[in-house]
Design a protein around this nucleic acid. Structure first.
Lengths: 214, 214
DNA sequence: AAAAAGAGTTGACTTATATCAATAAAGATA
DNA sequence: TATCTTTATTGATATAAGTCAACTCTTTTT
């Protein structure tokens, strides 16, 4: 089911030798999920180091109005919620598969004992942690610091695929209603910052948009 | 100016021996700041590993309306913005001293070379990084997910000193105006969740408050 | 091509929070 | 204690974004 080659393809473990990979294999297991299935719930106790192998995992919270707020989307092969495992606390948000997929679950206590002293592994974990901080900083910059207009401007400038998404979905990514997004894009069109070409928008004045969020 | 004992008192380095501490000393320097002085600006290139030795450092962003949004307050002896240094990027926010204080600046390239392979140091850094993630998660939970009322409820339940602060300052911590905070506390008083005793509030029904944010 | 379904847009209205201005209370200073 | 200064509260109003409902445009299905 889970092969050594599969482990090796995970960048955290690329420098491990055969013996180490075998040891790792013995403390790991693979779990598959279908679309929509829950990987873990907020408040569950974090037990395993979890790495997405296939599919997309979303991390989300539910606000008091029952809106789902997606904080992060993880693609293969990233570590999910390692903070909770390291800190020995419960998950601060829930996680669900947005597509079919699978994860690798590693027994954390044993991992710590056998692998954390390995410089390469430690380095890869540093990288993963710092990137997560970078990502969270960005979430804060986007959602706490900016208003809706600036949020749209920033997101469409920094994410090429943003305007290719369904309006609906983009609105959800940006934590606003489709109506609000539609109105903002209309405003940008009037200002000549974007243009509507065959049913999807294109940026025509990136400089102007940039001014809105900087 | 900067002594070995001072280095040793920093938990990241408590396991280092004399020789290592001397080496560390040679790649470090101490800088002192007066109240209000800037440690770094958003967009500055991150060059040194920075540890607060004395005083309080606030990390903040400026929103489009020129409000200062404080994301974090660091007390001795914590690492500041290590993410930017590790990632080799510019600081995602600005930092200023809220009191008099000092920091230790460590040449990161040399630190990486000499110390990062040290298991104890690496472990302490893990700890620092995961705690930062925990903190940022909390900022998001507080500011993105919750509305003002829930935010006040959560903050006063989880921070004993919250109601001892000046209303003004608490409002700033919670990213809302003093007026809004005042109105929310008045509402809580009416509901019997808090009580005003000689010019400061006290929680009388923590369970009720908890329900508001969970 | 017509019909149906889904997605996007628009207008009217509501709500949460900010803003501004006036007052009240608390704390500091003389 | 009286006066000054700062901080907190209150009311009125403004603003940004959400909600709801109608409508229009796409896309898909038949």
């Amino acid at each position: 089911m889970l092969s050594i080659d599969e482990l090796k393809s995970i960048n955290f473990f690329e420098h491990l030798d055969e013996k180490e990979l075998k040891l790792l294999l013995s403390i790991s297991r693979k779990r598959t999920f279908s679309q929509g299935e829950i990987l873990f719930y907020e408040k569950d106790k974090a037990q395993h180091l979890t790495i997405v192998l296939e599919g997309v995992v979303k991390i989300y919270k539910i606000d008091p109005k029952n809106n789902e707020i997606v904080l992060h989307r993880f693609r293969p092969k990233s570590l999910v919620a390692e903070m909770a495992v390291f800190e020995g606390i419960s998950y601060p948000a829930s996680a669900a598969f947005e597509s079919e997929g699978s994860v690798l679950e590693i027994d954390f206590e044993k991992f710590k004992e056998y692998f954390l002293a390995n410089t390469d592994v430690a380095f890869a974990l540093f990288k993963s942690l710092t990137q997560k901080i970078k990502y969270l900083d960005n979430v804060i910059a986007l959602n706490v610091v900016l208003d809706s207009t600036a949020r749209v401007a920033k997101y469409i400038c920094e994410n090429d695929d943003a305007l290719k998404m369904k309006n609906n979905q983009l609105a959800q990514y940006l934590h606003m209603t489709p109506e609000t997004l539609s109105r903002i894009l209309k405003k940008f069109t009037k200002l000549g910052f974007v243009e509507k070409a065959d049913s999807s928008y294109k940026i025509v004045n990136k400089e102007a948009l940039t001014i809105l969020f900087e």
